[in-house]
Amino acid sequence: MESISGASVHALQLLFSGNAELWNIIALSFSVSLKAILIAAPVAIVLAFLMAYQRFPGRRLLIYLFNTLLSVPAVVIGLTLYLLFSRSGPMGDLKLLFTQDAMIIGQIILCMPLILIMSHATFQASDRRIWETARTLGASRIQAMLTVMYDIRFGLMAALIAGFGRIVAEVGCSMMIGGNILHHTRNIPTAIALETSKGEFSQGIALGIVLLIMAMTLNVSLSLLQGKGEMI
């Protein structure tokens, strides 16, 4: 087992020398999480819009449901998907277990409620006159919806960033249904968990630095967006 300072120096060397294995893990992490966001976001945002702007039966129920989903631990979602996807499970024939697709599905389920709840709050707070003005000027429902979305684009962006932050560093679900296979389903959080358990800290620290930098970038952009781009 190496010393912490030695491991940190080694970690920086790994990062800046362009260590292929390390960057492969980073790329995989981002690719899986971005795909999950790209699929989850349109569905979540349109649903959030409908829940805020249309009266339909079961609206309240949906809000409760998504709030509950938001507080379900990632491992529980991982476990559920594991049981569904495992060979003897009801969806075993799809052969999804230990694939990137399974990780993407898990991350979609993880980020969807957060994006939905946050965009719903943004839609609720939006000015109804935007919708009314668009409609009275002859815009169709979909055009008017896009106009409202454009007006609250910073809030929606913030929801996306928060959703991305929730899944990119999440270890429980990825570990269970991804399986942590190198070059295939090993992403940043599962790699950190593995390297640490082996007592090899340098790669873990290097990946930790990447996550920290990313968390910082996400948080700064979040606060910038919530202040609509004003620094002070």
């Binding site: 009314e132 002859g138 055009q143």
Partner: peptide, 20 residues
Amino acid sequence: NPLMFDASVADNITYGMRKQ
């Protein structure tokens, strides 16, 4: 209190025509 879209005066005036 009229609502202005977050855009130029010209874009506000053409909004309805563009959507239609």
